[in-house]
Design a protein around this nucleic acid. Sequence first.
DNA 1: AAATCTTTGTTAAAAATTTAACAACCATTA
DNA 2: TAATGGTTGTTAAATTTTTAACAAAGATTT
Lengths: 210, 210
Amino acid sequence: MFKKFKIPDATIGRLSMYSRYLSEADEKGITTVSSQDIAQATGVTPAQVRKDLAYFGEFGTRGVGYNSRELYTYIMKILGLDKRWSIAIVGAGNLGRALSKYKGFQQRGFDIVCIFDNDPKKIGKKLANINIYPLDQLEEKVKELKIDLGIIAVPASAAQEVADMLVGAGIRGIINFAPINVTVKENIILRRVDLAAQLEYLTYYLEETR
Amino acid sequence: MFKKFKIPDATIGRLSMYSRYLSEADEKGITTVSSQDIAQATGVTPAQVRKDLAYFGEFGTRGVGYNSRELYTYIMKILGLDKRWSIAIVGAGNLGRALSKYKGFQQRGFDIVCIFDNDPKKIGKKLANINIYPLDQLEEKVKELKIDLGIIAVPASAAQEVADMLVGAGIRGIINFAPINVTVKENIILRRVDLAAQLEYLTYYLEETR
DNA sequence: AAATCTTTGTTAAAAATTTAACAACCATTA
DNA sequence: TAATGGTTGTTAAATTTTTAACAAAGATTT
């Protein structure tokens, strides 16, 4: 697609927010929005909105603004969300179970197609109508079901091993929820989400005044 | 505490990673670590580690390194984790339920002390031994239990309303898991965690090559 | 105790990101 | 059709963050 230059990571996150607002605006029948409108709704500056969009092309009309539906479609395409993606979750603990049921993924085009775990009590069962398989079937199932993305929801001690398995099976993108740094070969996209660290960000700012 | 200057947000997240590594090192009996060691374990550069720490003071010995346990203690204090924090979760859906059971919070000093929801079928029940109360008891319970932090795990449509209630009840920090921008008065610390957006970050990088 | 080896803390440089400013351009109105 | 108002796309400036370099200082060796 576009992507001649390096795009800031933060821009990608903001595009996601913009798209949600645009979809909402379109549903409400608001056909045209300005960078000001988008900015207000998503908590950024209008200049930021225009800059973010400028990385990818010209989508608006000077003096007018952006067509909601059209810009929505463009952004979704930029994010790769003009098609659906298949996902595997590794780890059927509390987090894995919640993620498998989370409606927010479906809505944005992500289908959780299988779950892996090593606990014999869980294997063979279903979660939100999704089969749970043992880890040694990971490679087989990933290939069979053409799974693109993996979510690591196992304890930190097992995270690297699981990452290796996912990469070995041919997965190309990973979200790691385990609170540990895992490494993968460079053509694999990896993102870490540390839930506890999010709370620690709050306490850092609050601890001085309690 | 320290905090004369503006500290990069990213630094806070990295301190959290450093602390986990330091605790692990200490448990293994490794008493001294270098910025190089910390960097390797957490996936950053040694210069970054030293710079991050330099915002808060001098914790190491030149030619030697850092004492694992000592640095761990310092960082935990910086993050405000030398004491425990009480948390309320609003929303007993899939995500709220998972977060209430998530062991990772406990381990880092966060106690989920109550859950709020408006569904009559859920009110009065317990989740992971935590009581579920109706939303109209939020203010009362937050004050009674001296709750510091709130987690919003409700649909986007209700997020702003819940944020207002939390702030009204005296909460000072909020994590918002709803995929929408909420606003709060400026002395409240707010952080948004968009799970679907994390996956979209992956698909952005992958969509061109599928 | 001098020399050497290490690793920190700090300063300077580089790179990345955000903010601001404004020319270009479209639509509307006089 | 000229003038006005409004909003984008883009360029430049400012700010923030990261990386690199190195002097300072502790430990070890000769």
